[in-house]
Design a protein around this nucleic acid. Structure first.
Lengths: 342, 342
DNA sequence: CTGAAAGCGCTAACAT
DNA sequence: ATGTTAGCGCTTTCAG
């Protein structure tokens, strides 16, 4: 039940009959302190079980060595891999990471951002919630010149650094792949268009069709939130069309999978009768039968990059005036669900 | 380039020609302040763009409203779901969460624990690294009566609260299920026995066999790290036996999957000729073909529970003397890979 | 090379 | 109902 107050630098100072400032300097390896006293102080600190109080130091230094991360959902492969990347650079650079999830709710996101600000994080890394259509809460940071790096779900309007993949090219690559496999009526399951990442993918899809002289049929484009249930309802809706599609480019792997499950159940052969391609290469996509074609989003690397960039900005005295947008490569992964030509 | 210092309660006080303490009290809804002045103060705070400095408040209050979490790897379904659970209770109770990963390295774990301590987290939730065989770093917390909750990878020696599943029963349930399906020679792929969670599961397996008068054949028990490759090598080894098994209880779903892939490739029918059951209900297990029987480890719920318990302890003035061990139920999920009797 | 003193922003006795 | 004052633990001028 040893619950007495922690040992502070003052305790060490008193014990050694020196001043607290000397102790502080010694523990921070300040060159103005002699080797001898440093050793003496460090030894005593160890002996007394001294543990620095980071909070006090943070308050005094106006710096917390902490990075805030906001993601829609931590429990998603893409995001947890991304965070893992950030965590890696952060910890090697001496930063802690505070993570919060918005659950895709704007209100929660706002609250989190305020809380992170109040905790005086040195920088912020964020991916927007699906509902986010206003950005005042981020102004808090930019107004005070605290660097922000957005990733994945970003908006062009935001003046900040961004780590993204080329979603337009994603749409193009996925669609052209399906075309190359001989599919004729290609549908697209798109996410909420408030998010430009989904808009861009759709634009890529349209562009690929146009370039290949395939007419664009808006009834083949469905918008929803890309959940499992959404996928199933979308495929039902598509199949009920007068001229149903013979392939779908899905906004994510989850919805592609749920479409596949439904199609298999009603006896549609994949990829012979129907082609499917998803997005983001979830771990399951490789192991289901048939395996699902998709595009790999380099989550971990994006996290590393975001962390690097942010820390660079934090440690630069003057804010860099221009905002970088780093576009990471995506890789088309052709698997069974869309591969009907050897 | 608005980089001037933040608005503090003193700025508000000066503006309103009142004292800082009144401002502080008003903003904290202290009943001793009149409604009128509260309103006035809050309005001014809003107008001036005041954002509380949590650090200062933390230092003063000796409380950070922050929970530290240490996991081996954030980018793993079980851990990220668990964290998600913690995060949920934490945020509804007004706590932030700092997450760090040990990468299964003892040294990293030590460093993290010290850093979390220095950041004066109000409590700690941890799952041990695979290397952890000493526990002094956690003493830091217990000595100062800061509550800790261990989960999943725990050791009995630790005097702290624990959230676990009944691994012995896991072994029993899995094995008895295979027996009930008529499999005769049941093998077990076990993880590293330094971790008691794997030891317990194996004990459950043995116990179930004994109870059903099935002789235990040690050549049917294989130990490795349960990776994909491990699974494949294990099944090859098992099939090469003079009397090969007709079913395997695997220590996790990954290894069960890789066995399945191999068995399918060489033409073994599942579940007719061979039965498989895994553990932990990875997302892919449900969607592969055949779907994999498994036992659900309620990660998210465990996270909720851990968070609840920890916060309870934090907010109790006196530490509860006894250490709770909460055993969460696991659920047998029978799917195709082991279900040969309708 | 070391010490004294002030202050980071907030809160809570203790006043009144 | 509000103000005064001191201090959480640390760092950093400024002085010597």
């Amino acid at each position: 039940m040893d619950n007495k107050a922690s040992v502070t630098i003052h305790d060490i100072a008193r014990e050694l009959k020196i001043s607290a400032s000397t102790v502080s300097r010694a523990l921070n390896d300040n060159p103005r302190i002699s080797k001898a006293t440093k050793d003496k102080i460090k030894e005593m600190a160890l002996k007394m079980g001294y543990q620095p109080n980071t909070i006090a130091s943070n308050l005094r230094n106006q710096k917390t060595n902490t990075i805030g991360i906001v993601v829609p959902l931590i429990n998603r492969h893409f995001f947890s891999s991304f965070i893992s990347g950030v965590e890696e650079v952060a910890s090697t650079s001496g930063y802690n990471v505070i993570i919060s999830q918005s659950n895709d709710l704007l209100e929660k996101e706002k609250q989190i951002v305020h809380s992170l600000f109040s905790n005086r994080v040195d920088g912020l890394i964020a991916s927007l919630s699906m509902q986010t259509n206003e950005f005042d809460h981020f102004q808090l940071f930019s107004k005070k010149n605290i660097p922000i790096v957005f990733f994945d779900r970003v908006v062009p309007e935001l003046e900040a650094h961004k780590i993204v993949v080329d979603d337009f090219m994603v749409g193009v690559k996925a669609t052209e792949h399906l075309i190359s496999q001989g599919y004729k009526r290609i549908a697209h399951l798109a996410g909420p268009t408030v998010l430009h990442t989904y808009r861009d993918r759709m634009a890529g899809y349209r562009s690929a069709l146009e370039k290949n002289n395939i007419p664009i049929d808006d009834s083949l484009i469905i918008f929803n939130r890309l959940t499992r249930i959404d996928g199933q309802e979308a495929i039902k809706q598509l199949l009920a069309l007068p001229h149903p599609p013979d392939a779908v480019f899905c906004g994510n792997d989850i919805s592609a999978l749920s479409m596949m499950v439904y199609l298999k159940k009603i006896g549609v052969r994949i990829p012979e009768d129907f082609g499917l391609i998803g997005f983001s290469n979830e771990p399951f996509s490789e192991v289901v039968t048939p395996s699902i074609s998709t595009l790999e989003q380099p989550a971990f690397k994006m996290g590393l990059k975001a962390g690097e960039l942010l820390i660079q900005e934090i440690e630069r005295k003057t804010r860099s005036s221009k905002h970088l947008t780093i576009t990471m490569p995506t890789e088309l992964i052709v698997r069974e669900s869309s591969n009907r030509k050897k």
